[in-house]
Write a protein that binds this DNA or RNA. Structure first.
Length: 311
DNA sequence: CGATGGGCCCAAATTGCCAA
DNA sequence: TTGGCAATTTGGGCCCATCG
């Protein structure tokens, strides 16, 4: 890996950069950058620091994970059949009304969701002073935290996952209704900015897109993490997120849900069958109290009272 | 019509075993 | 212990037959 770290511009690497050396090299790069920045005028210094700073994420308890609602109410992180993941270019992603998402990159599934959510979680928890914008973590503990087996295949999977999250272009347009009337909000960028992987130590050094924090402004949800880890199927995970983001779920047609979660199931009957199984999973995990499908093919979901918690 | 049970197949995830 | 590898299990879409 050739080093271009003497440049005084922030690095714009998007590809994988498996540094064969330990993290101290990465730190040295950062220090060098710091020195360069220090040569600039105070105003410029402040400007750069301001731009690089990842805004504070909201805080949530350890047993939960904070997730922007737009990740839960769309097919941005959907259900994808094994072996059927595809790359798309500027595709409109299915979502609830008032939310417009365009996406370029490999389609993301519930596994990618787990990874991004855990990354955001670490971002709120990390306390390294040297480089505020980067988080550092070990593969093994990371995989454990999202309920996966550590090992070679797990490591490979995780790296693929970060590749996907890095090489994306998400464009989100939200219409917000607040006391000032209607407001439009746009986000465009990738999800993860860049990452370094140390093959020997099995550690990551990673930076999320700072703007990601702003997505929380449009509403977010505390996911019950243990509940989610109990769920086996991707559809159950998606439904868990979807219904967690609604205080009072409104009845929704099976066909609508099929569209929203990004399922490519050809026959509605088969999807209905899998949604029945997934709902049973949710009841088992204690995520919802009850559910039923009415004669109009709408799904009614009853949540437990006094449970979490959309902000 | 759709529900249910069974079966098939593909690919991914996990597990068990071995050697370093 | 750990990592690598092959065997096994699992998830999920799809199809069929049968029943209400």
């Amino acid at each position: 890996m050739k080093s271009d770290q003497q440049s005084n511009k922030p690095q714009r690497k998007t590809a994988v950069t498996p540094l064969g050396e330990n993290a101290s090299v990465t730190r040295a790069i950062k220090t060098a950058q710091e020195r360069c920045i220090n040569l600039l005028s105070p105003e410029l210094q402040n400007k750069i620091r301001e731009l690089e700073q990842i805004p504070l994420l909201p805080d949530w308890p350890d047993k939960t994970r904070g997730v922007p609602n737009l990740c839960l109410r769309s097919a941005l992180f959907g259900v994808i059949r094994r072996g059927r993941r595809r790359a798309v270019k500027g595709e409109v992603i299915a979502s609830v009304q008032g939310l417009n998402i365009r996406y370029t990159g490999w389609r993301l599934d519930q596994g990618d969701f787990d990874v991004l959510v855990q990354t955001l979680h670490l971002q709120t928890r990390h306390i390294e002073k040297t480089s505020k914008n980067y988080i550092r973590f070990e593969v093994k503990s990371f995989l454990r935290a999202i309920g996966r087996q550590p090992g070679k295949s797990g490591r490979e999977w995780l790296k693929d996952c970060f590749r996907r999250l890095t090489a994306t272009a998400v464009e989100i347009n939200v219409e917000l209704r607040n006391r000032y009337g209607n407001e439009a909000y746009t986000y465009a960028g990738s999800l993860v900015d860049e990452f370094y992987y140390n093959d020997r130590e099995h550690t990551y050094f990673l930076k999320i897109n700072p703007k990601l924090a702003e997505l929380f402004d449009a509403g977010w949800t505390q996911l019950q993490w243990q509940q989610r880890l109990q769920l086996k199927t991707d559809l159950a995970k998606w439904l868990h997120g979807f219904y967690s983001s609604h205080r009072v779920p409104y009845p929704m047609k099976v066909a609508t849900l099929k569209h929203l979660c990004g399922s490519d199931c050809k026959r509605l009957v088969d999807y209905r069958r899998s949604i029945r199984n997934a709902m049973a999973e949710l009841v088992n995990a204690g995520a919802i109290q009850a559910w039923q499908i009415d004669r109009k093919d709408k799904i009614h979901v009853q949540r437990f009272a006094n449970r979490p918690i959309s902000k």
